[in-house]
């Protein structure tokens, strides 16, 4: 078997169970991004590029600090800067590190038609295995957070791996390692929730009464969580969805429609079979031919 920490518990487009004997007894992992501590230095972006050997285009300034301007196959994480004026007239510069949320119930994995292109490990990390990716982009359709990006060059899907290769050998993700202010921390999900609770208490003492943890239940919780000053308004943070869940459309598409469609096709064919056996073919006999001949001659 592969490294224990990379035990696969869920595999895209696979109808049989994955090996399940081993469990993540130490608990699932999580990365906690404390937006209230983040200074937007982009060291995480550099660490991500360096560790993963990624180099995006040298772009241009679009009037924002967000650079590169969007996630791409070469930028698996980026800081998104939002200016927000509070009711009291104070300015806030909300800086959110965007990237894969590693949902417990991943929309990408649900949508993926290629067996093993998207997997979920026992520790909760959702990973893309590009060698199995067929490039259809269904993961983009499935993701409630608009994260996966399809390369224009190789047409494979890419996103943050939560440094599954590092985590597999007991290291924290590269962005966590490099974060100078400790705004990104990593550990078991339980520990991270506890840490978040302490941070939230501190924030509340500083007047952020709606401070809270972003661990949206709609996707079963996530393995990347945020501490937000305004947990009641996640959309302030560069449109972080307030109640993300796998779209009903995707649910229908990748849920009921699959068995129903096969059933409908099979039923149609079976009906034909029954009809053929029960009632039989509709044949033209000599009488019909004779009648036709008669009519032809009459007409002539």
């Amino acid at each position: 078997m592969a490294l224990q920490s990379l035990d696969i518990v869920r595999r895209s487009a696979t109808t049989t169970p994955s090996p399940q004997a081993r469990e993540a007894h130490a608990g699932e992992v999580a990365k906690l991004i404390d937006v209230t501590k983040c200074i937007g230095c982009k060291a995480c972006q550099v660490a991500c590029m360096e560790w993963n050997d990624l180099r995006d285009e040298i772009g241009s300034c679009t009037g924002h600090y967000d650079n590169p301007a969007d996630l791409s196959e070469h930028s698996w994480t980026l800081m998104r800067f939002s200016e927000h004026e509070t009711a009291a007239g104070d300015l806030e510069w909300l800086i959110r590190k965007d990237g894969c949320m590693h949902c417990a119930d991943p929309g990408c994995l649900k949508a993926c038609p290629a067996p093993g292109a998207i997997v979920q490990y026992a520790n909760g990390i959702v990973d893309f295995h590009e060698e199995n990716c067929i490039g259809c982009g269904y993961c983009v359709t499935g993701c409630p957070f608009n994260v996966p990006r399809i390369s224009k060059r190789d047409h494979k899907a890419y996103k943050c791996t939560l440094c599954s290769d590092r985590v597999a050998v007991g290291l924290e993700p590269a962005c966590v390692k490099t974060c100078p202010t400790g705004a990104i921390v990593f550990g078991t999900k339980d520990d991270m929730k506890q840490h978040a609770a302490e941070r939230i208490e501190d924030l509340k003492s500083r007047g952020f009464e709606h401070a809270g943890l972003y661990d949206p239940a709609g996707v079963g919780g996530t393995h990347v969580m945020y501490v937000l000053h305004h947990a009641d308004q996640p959309q302030l943070y560069a449109n972080l969805p307030a109640e993300p869940k796998i779209s009903a459309m995707v649910g229908l598409w990748k849920g009921m429609s699959k068995p129903l469609a096969l059933l409908a096709i099979a039923a149609t064919a079976f009906a034909g079979f029954l009809h053929y056996i029960g009632i039989g073919p509709n044949e033209v006999d000599e009488d019909d031919e004779a009648a036709a001949r008669r009519e032809m001659e009459e007409t002539r």
């Binding site: 501590k37 200074i39 937007g40 230095c41 060291a43 300015l91 806030e92 510069w93 909300l94 800086i95 100078p180 202010t181 400790g182 705004a183 941070r199 501190d202 003492s205 500083r206």
Partner: peptide, 30 residues
């Protein structure tokens, strides 16, 4: 940014308050 970690430590573990006075609302101000 690396040295600034000690400000975040003071805030996190010492209940310190941070004041920023600057012509611009800076990353520190954030």
């Amino acid at each position: 940014p690396c040295g600034f970690k000690w400000v975040t430590e003071a805030k996190a573990h010492n209940k310190a308050k941070l004041i920023v006075v600057d012509p611009r609302f800076t990353r520190s101000a954030s």
